[in-house]
Design a protein around this nucleic acid. Structure first.
Lengths: 234, 234
DNA sequence: TCTACGGACGAACACTGTTCGTGTCAACTG
DNA sequence: CAGTTGACACGAACAGTGTTCGTCCGTAGA
């Protein structure tokens, strides 16, 4: 019966061959196509939706096909943050504008991460010796050295700043996108403010008094504040 | 035959009742027991091993039993970081030592997170209005206000510092504990240094030149450096 | 004593990452 | 040109995940 079903399939194949368009000639899977598909998926549905199966399905195949081009999901994650890192443009270091240049590069990275919600989680786990992230480190190092910062403080400041960028964007993504209209979790600013004011004054005197300050900060004010804090401390 | 097997079980139960020790009298599951078990699991095997099934198994039951006491795995995570937050002791604010006090509290939190490898991932996702984390915010706010810092910069600095603590501990855990003796990933410091030196000088001049500084920092030197950076900037 | 109710839990669902073995098509080789 | 080889595609499966449903049972209240 194996024979029979086999010839039946051949028969179907022959019929399919009669169609004017041969079945799309399925172009081969490449690492680039995988990365592009994955990024589109993260952009549309967030990092939690990035699944080997979903990527494979979007490419019209099964999950096993991806493992010929990518060792791991972790390696795919690394490739994604590498691609994102390649999108930030590094300025020619200018001694007089080193602070602004530093903040600008970090801001570019922040925007890249925010555009693909949740992907910063992969950035925190990314291999420390990734070539594309090292390119950014090199650029930031050039900026700080040009600004007259000593090498070791410069290196450590870069480390701290990049860590902060990742944490900031992870948190921003988790706050925004946890799930559609869940009852808890998606508490907006006014709600948080109201809850802070409800705290017992005996145990949380300063929190209650300055609840508005704890929740203030439009856009990326807090982000810029934190980076300026680090740079002014140098 | 349902009858038959049923009576067989009853028979077995009667036999079991003959034992001097009644079957351990299975003490009830409580939120506290769940949290304690979960923390022990994370301490021993890392946050990735924290599974509803493993917690349930450690309690001698199935995963469904946990959902009577805990809404989500996310809620369990929140409970864990709440418990950890409750372990840091807040000093009485002292105007002359506000910087040292601030760094000390952050260091306590860091040590708590490092003691339960990977748990900081949950801290980044934790609810912003958790009572136990708010207690730490309140304590830090008291310290900074006592030090003469204005409320809004104080609030934003606390936000940045706590974010940094989480990011620092997440990264430290991921670097250390990814998997037992995997071939890649667990690249030690000397290996990273060697790889940095192999970079093409044309594209990575500063990275190659200062490779040693990029990798320096014993213990928590970088951690203290980053926090001092923020505090000096105030 | 009977009833209600909340906790415990077995089984299942819909997922996840990953591997194994087989198939198939292309490009080298004789 | 015929034949072999090797890389890639992929169906099926495995072990594991969070979560839910329906049923059981022991204890507290009427």
């Amino acid at each position: 019966m194996k024979r029979k079903s086999s010839s039946r399939e051949e028969w179907a194949a022959q019929i399919a061959a009669l169609e004017d368009v041969p079945p799309a000639r399925k172009e081969p899977i490449t690492v680039d196509r995988i990365v592009t598909t994955a990024l589109a998926l993260v952009e549309a549905e967030g990092f939690a939706a990035l699944t080997m199966r979903r990527v494979a399905a979007a490419l019209g195949t099964g999950p096993a096909s991806l493992y010929a081009h990518v060792r791991n999901k972790a390696e795919l994650d690394d490739l994604l943050i590498g691609t994102l890192s390649r999108n930030v443009s590094l300025p020619a270091p200018h001694a007089g504008r080193w602070r602004a240049q530093f903040v600008d590069v970090c801001g570019q990275l922040r925007d890249q991460f925010l555009h693909y919600p949740g992907i910063a989680q992969a950035a925190l786990a990314a291999a420390p010796a990734n070539l594309d992230t090292l390119r950014i480190t090199e650029g930031l190092l050039a900026i700080l050295l040009k600004g007259g910062v000593e090498p070791e403080p410069a290196a450590w400041t870069i480390d701290a700043a990049l860590l902060y960028v990742s944490a900031y964007t992870v948190e921003a993504s988790l706050r925004r996108h946890p799930d559609r209209d869940e009852d808890s979790r998606v508490v907006d600013r006014d709600e948080i403010l109201a809850r802070l004011r409800m705290l017992p004054i005996s145990r949380f005197p300063h929190t209650v008094e300055h609840a508005d300050k704890l929740n203030s900060g439009e856009g990326h004010e807090r982000f810029e504040f934190a980076l300026q804090l680090m740079l002014k401390g140098l």
